[in-house]
Write a protein that binds this DNA or RNA. Structure first.
Lengths: 102, 102
DNA sequence: CCTGTTGTTCGATGTTATTAGAACAACAGG
DNA sequence: CCTGTTGTTCTAATAACATCGAACAACAGG
């Protein structure tokens, strides 16, 4: 439970990010963080099992969309805005603007 | 070979478009059209079988990313720029800018 | 310690994607 | 007509994904 692999900014791929964002559950996670700021995994009200949610958080983390840090018994999730904007300027904003409000 | 289903502008979905663009083969098709204008299917130099290429063109068409029209024995592919820009402003440009040059 | 909270990992399952070969369809040009 | 070009459709095999339940791990607080 300790090893959180975050890819470096350089190793982010466009295909990977697009793939991560193409899932509705993951997109809703990203939208929620963008709207409400960083949150722990349990606060998203996802209608999937814990293990499924964990899988989606992992995909978002391993593709470089989000960052997770441990805090007590929970994990705080935040967007990697600077990294995403640096590698793919305008992409995150376009996706957030295109998606319906949370 | 005659029925080409193109979704209406309204029925384009963000998840669908992101999914379509998340595949490297399909992304290369989109990049090529964006760079060189409309092209027939055979001009992309794709390193996949004909049937595989046809599959990818279909995904791009059915998610609303490209438009295909018959012309003689071949199909001419073009981007649905206006529709994409209307529904997801800035998204296509961000994707094209983020990807490496063709 | 013991218990509850939080989230991960493992194993399994069902669905969807990707890929390719073979056969087919539409058309153009001798 | 016959042939070659272009691309689709069908069928099938492999790979990848999403999903869940159960078990586990880390931690906080009695």
């Amino acid at each position: 439970m300790r090893a959180l692999n975050h890819p470096s900014r350089k190793s982010l791929t466009l295909s990977g990010v697009l793939y991560a964002l193409s899932d509705p559950v993951r997109l809703s996670i990203v939208k929620s963080i963008a709207a409400h700021g960083e949150q722990s995994c349990g606060t998203f009200g996802l209608s999937v099992a814990k293990s499924t949610a964990s899988h989606h958080f992992r995909v978002l983390r391993e593709t470089g969309v989000i960052q997770m840090r441990a805090e007590g018994t929970q994990y705080i999730n935040s967007l990697r805005r600077e990294d995403l904007d640096s590698r793919f300027p305008g992409l995150l904003d376009a996706v957030l603007q295109a998606s319906n409000p949370v």
